[in-house]
């Protein structure tokens, strides 16, 4: 079982939860049908895809929502990497969903709900990408702590997507301290193995 697939497992559970909720499917469907804005109009430039970014699954709005959410979810040092586009979360998520069709539709819906959902479903009255960081944190915190299972699943799915995108990037090793797949001078593989006094 690879780490990517563990994240997909979480996304799958979010997808299943959304599939059981007609009103959430509706929000996703409205966005897909163009009844809610999906382009970049009204999206702050800091979250919008760069010129020439070719998206396979996500709309520009979905890209922006995903990027904005990730920058709050991964923490301040990670957010700086995302805002500098050293880690392009939106592009990674788009490519990932393109090759994982099982979860692509429900996760695109989840992002649409996060962007356009308003009170009483989400603690906001405006699109997620238009909020400042503190207000975005309030929305995410409310989802995480909600007594409603579907809101917690929505949070878990978006969070998994963000973690998947961010921690798959080699640049994120600056945050986690992960030395890379084949060891490094600083942390050789031998450092992970038991010593003469350990049990076995």
């Amino acid at each position: 079982m690879t780490p990517t697939l563990e994240a997909v497992g979480t996304l799958a559970r979010t997808g299943a939860a959304l599939e059981r909720r007609a009103f959430l499917r509706l929000a996703g469907a409205l966005a897909a049908a163009g009844l809610l804005p999906s382009g970049c109009r009204g999206v702050p430039e800091r979250w919008a895809p760069g010129p020439g970014t070719d998206l396979a699954v996500l709309s520009p709005r979905g890209y922006a929502t995903c990027t904005a959410a990730a920058s709050r979810l991964v923490g301040p040092e990670g957010a700086a990497l995302i805002e500098r586009r050293s880690v392009d979360v939106g592009r990674f998520v788009d490519a990932f969903l393109a090759r994982t069709p099982t979860v692509a539709a429900p996760m695109a819906q989840a992002l649409a709900v996060l962007e356009f959902g308003v009170w009483p479903l989400l603690r906001k009255g405006w699109p997620f990408t238009s909020l400042d960081g503190r207000a975005q944190d309030v929305v995410l915190d409310d989802l995480m702590r909600s007594r409603l299972e579907v809101k917690r699943q929505l949070f878990a799915g978006v969070r998994s997507l963000a973690m998947l995108a961010f921690y798959s990037a080699p640049e994120s090793r600056a945050v986690s301290g992960y030395p890379g797949p084949f060891g490094s001078d600083a942390v050789p593989i031998g450092a992970a193995m038991i010593g003469p006094h350990d049990l076995w």
């Binding site: 780490p3 990517t4 563990e6 923490g75 942390v187």
Partner: peptide
Amino acid sequence: SVSALPLPTATALPGFGAEHETRMRALA
């Protein structure tokens, strides 16, 4: 026992934002 690579650990750790980032620094 199973290996603790960055991504599944990030998914497993609770919370988000600065709290999560602080926990991730303890990956090793």
